[in-house]
Design a protein around this nucleic acid. Structure first.
Lengths: 233, 233
DNA sequence: CGTGAGGTTGAGATCCTTCAACAGATGTGG
DNA sequence: CCACATCTGTTGAAGGATCTCAACCTCACG
């Protein structure tokens, strides 16, 4: 149950923009807005979806296992939705979700979401936009994986991260390096080695802090492609 | 412009089920239903989307380039939609599309699709389902890429293809082996070598025809996971 | 100070790609 | 019908990329 303040805060979220007030009220009826500490699992792959999750603040890692391997598929920051696809289709999660930065999460009952979908075109359109955006993000990731080497993926991650944080040429890895390694699709050891290789291109690493000494050289190595790297395209 | 028969055929497609007749009429207003021979390009990555495409028959390969590399992301058979995400968001295609099996394609004007999205909740919900399904398919593919070796991907492709075609333990590769190689994320040479390796597990290859001599051995090697391999989960 | 977690480095094995040569099938024109 | 070209796929050899295992290092923290 949401408090008055929570209700007001939640109803202002992008996901509800343009929706009918009744739709919003119905969705928030059985909703929760909870704080979660780092390390908590919010969903487990293979299990049916109970809630649509909205990251109000903090960050969540989506990861999967197979045999004795594990990889992270995506890191979701605020203010984004996740596991929308599983909720819409009412099928088991394909990924587990784990808090990697203390987070406030709005949880909307899955059944309400599916109901709203067929009753409110604006909400359905918003969900369609969310899904389309998520779809494109994964597609870019798949292209990234299949078309680039590990070193290229790292170089592009650095270049993108730099422009996203104001092109100061100083960036900070916002989580453990092993998470970054898994996200980039390489072993942690390989991430170290790739960083070492990038020293030749003016990249200096000190713990989680990275300095891009020669942005042009890095850019030239990375050869970013808007159809892979632009988050907004 | 569609003929009377084409209109009737098109309006029976799954994508329209539950939609208001006016929505369907509006969508089919400026639509085309064309036959395309093998090899034709239907869309080019980087260009804006003009039409939502529905594969009525035949097959289409979605592929991408980067530097001098190319990979296929997906192969779409009938009766499926593609480039829905680009149309919904009105953003450039992330992938090119090429006919690999003579196809009949229904093309719905992108602007009409976006209009229908906000006016007809049933249509919006259908598109949301399409997008959610496509999203999950790419996610599975990404897991496949990041969590498995090439040999495992091939073994699982064979196992899945076999069950999809009636578990006769005889399958036919429905397109060129180089397309299969790109789809599985390996060089064509490597596909050959992986097939050679599979001989030890009872897999016999003669051109495009494959016989699975020891299904249990293949299954044991593949170790399929419903959260990667089940098309319906 | 120890201790443990996260990160780095080295060595060897494995996976995969590239380049090159070759084989087989298909098609064409004389 | 044959010679030739072409396209696809296979095979071999070499090198590159990546992973695993192990040792070591560093730093925060009790």
């Amino acid at each position: 149950m949401l408090s008055r303040e929570q209700f007001d805060e939640a109803s202002g979220l992008q996901i509800f923009s343009g929706c009918r007030p009744e739709t919003i009220a119905m969705l928030l009826e059985g909703a929760f807005l909870h704080k979660f500490p780092e390390g908590i699992d919010l969903a487990k792959e293979g299990e049916p979806p109970d809630f649509l999750h909205v990251v109000v603040s903090g960050a969540v890692e989506l990861y999967s296992r197979y045999r004795d391997r594990e990889t992270t598929i995506e890191v979701i920051g605020a203010p984004n939705v996740f596991i929308a696809a599983a909720v819409v289709l009412d099928r088991p999660h394909l990924k587990s979700a784990r808090v990697i930065e203390p987070a406030r999460i709005l949880m909307l009952p899955a059944a309400s979401v599916r109901k709203a979908l067929s009753e409110d075109a604006a909400f359905a359109a918003r969900i369609a936009v969310e899904l389309a955006t998520a779809y494109r993000a994964v597609t870019k990731d798949l292209k990234n994986q299949k078309l680039r080497t590990g070193l290229e993926r790292l170089a592009n991650w650095l270049a993108r991260r730099d422009t996203e944080t104001g092109s100061t040429h100083r960036i900070v890895i916002p989580y453990d390096k092993k998470v970054l390694a898994a996200q980039l699709g390489m072993a942690p050891e390989n991430l170290s080695r790739n960083f070492a290789t990038l020293a030749r291109f003016g990249v200096k690493v000190k713990g989680a802090r990275i300095e891009i000494g020669d942005p042009a050289a890095l850019e030239n190595l990375a050869k970013p492609d808007p159809l892979i790297d632009d988050p907004s395209s």
